[in-house]
Design a protein around this nucleic acid. Sequence first.
DNA 1: CTTGTCTCTGCAATCGATTGCAGAAATAAT
DNA 2: ATTATTTCTGCAATCGATTGCAGAGACAAG
Lengths: 347, 347
Amino acid sequence: MESDKDQRRSNVTLKQVAERAGVHASTVSRALNAATRSMVAEDVVARVEKAAAQMGYRRDPVAASLRTGRSKLVGVLVPDIVNPVFGPILSGVSELFASQGYSVIVADVGNDENRQLELVQGLIAHRVDGLILATVSRDDPLVDYCLSRKLPAVLVNRAEMRARLPAVISDDALGMQLAVDHLVELGHRTIGHLAGPSRHSTGYLRRRGFQLAILSHGIELQDAPCQDTLAYTREEGAAATHRLLDASPNLTAIASANDLLALGAYDALRERGLSCPADISIIGHNDMPMLDLVSPALTTVRISHKQMGRQAGQLLQAAIENNDSPPHNVVLPSQLVVRASTASPRA
Amino acid sequence: MESDKDQRRSNVTLKQVAERAGVHASTVSRALNAATRSMVAEDVVARVEKAAAQMGYRRDPVAASLRTGRSKLVGVLVPDIVNPVFGPILSGVSELFASQGYSVIVADVGNDENRQLELVQGLIAHRVDGLILATVSRDDPLVDYCLSRKLPAVLVNRAEMRARLPAVISDDALGMQLAVDHLVELGHRTIGHLAGPSRHSTGYLRRRGFQLAILSHGIELQDAPCQDTLAYTREEGAAATHRLLDASPNLTAIASANDLLALGAYDALRERGLSCPADISIIGHNDMPMLDLVSPALTTVRISHKQMGRQAGQLLQAAIENNDSPPHNVVLPSQLVVRASTASPRA
DNA sequence: CTTGTCTCTGCAATCGATTGCAGAAATAAT
DNA sequence: ATTATTTCTGCAATCGATTGCAGAGACAAG
């Protein structure tokens, strides 16, 4: 009965170390904690450290957490862990936190969006020190919740419109500008846009970025039709592409808000017997893995998601460890990756 | 100072509910816990539940964990979260556990393999109730560690050779048999194999499965050369393919242990000016996302990784909640997905 | 009416670390 | 030599829930 529990943990407690070192448990606690070590005489620290090392003492974070309220746990909320952009983000986040002694709880929202709050409450119950949210919409009640709880949180990939919490995002306007510049340079004059869901900052900002970029080239917005989608999926991309082509038959290029939408556009073109890039040039956004192998290899705008995750981790750590630093966004530059899906329009 | 902590948690404690309901905290604890509810009179249970609901009481899992040793946390160790097979696995695992009130801590081993033990110790320190290991080699010290700690654990994707812990894997032999059957049926008689790292069960078993399948068709093993790789990457796949083709110039097909290796084979063929499937047929393994879009679309053996994750979750939950049930493996059937990378060899 | 059996509920210890407070010892200042 | 100050260490409470034990009351059996 008891043996189970005994074996599961290293079961060396502060008190045992204290006994061995001939001091009180509170002294051991102070000696082993960097912040309070200075309160203890040097020789005692040495004695305690030796005893702790000999006995293989490991501090119990659960007990510490109960007392202090801090846990060395951070929560990450992702909308869909299967989506390939979140792998690198999680990788960046967990790489950073692992090196700082934090563990990362991942909550995958999956299909039940309205369970988000519940998931967050679960994380809070586990006393996470902070949260990374990759799920927020442009004005998200979850942010209200975090703010009201004074829970440190950082947004990643998607941001709110008003900067209530720090966010790490890519430069959506720049990305679309790069995409449109490229297409215009190739000679395209009628360019469509597959817009992401407008409730997400990525969808909204890329759409605006697209239109600004179009205008910057002196093209009329009526020659730059947009089609909204409800989700970043191939199916949505295909459907929206069909609508786009139906409405604007003389379109020669599509700048997409997302790679999956762009791949959906491939599907739609195939269904219509059109070829890319001969008939229509297509450009994606994100540069998720393996795009160099699809046919045609997809020209896209590269975002370093791993870097994004790392940055978000850093910001969150800063927010956890000192309450100052006003919420400020980090905007990472994006970069055009030209492959085979874009070409000059037929003469 | 204090206000921070106060706001972060719902801060309603058992004692407060007890006061409101006019009973002792221990009674509240019993009334709110399904297993002990029967010890409390019905009317009292009702009163307690009402008070708890009114006050928005939420049990503090950290405090409970300290006392009971159980945490409603499970840990998942993945070798590389960026690898697209682990997204679905994690998704399956977390879907299952979310519905059971567990939270999932994900530890990404990433590049520092020798920190595995450290990561696991961290998870244990957080008192995870169990572990899902997607990282194990064919004979892994981590398994010893879990066994010695009596920590419930389930292997997924990769298994050990001796069944010390329950494992959920795909039927590697069947998968290779399907692949070889398909190639033989197309007329191939000299078939190479890109083998995965032999320290992983997948690499080892698929290689054996390949050879068994070859023999089952009466083909000599000398007409079925294998090349080992050190990791499931495109680079390794390309390098091994070059070695394979150098050694066996009359090869007409390659059955690969993994999709990434197969994509590496694409790279190698391109470098040599060979075409797939005209010159060489290639077949992958796993059916990771987006293989239908690569060129040529990759024929592969499909494994349902999400299903694998779910199963592993179920097994782990069972292992956590009752210590019986001998370690038994669950072998999921795999399935051939024919696309464009396989064809009959040139006459 | 007494004794025994159940059914509930409360008491208090416990999980393991942290920390405010106070006392002891050592050192400095007067 | 006395007082003031600093430095160190121990005491004990605390975080919030769980649980073995025992006592109170209800009720049945003798």
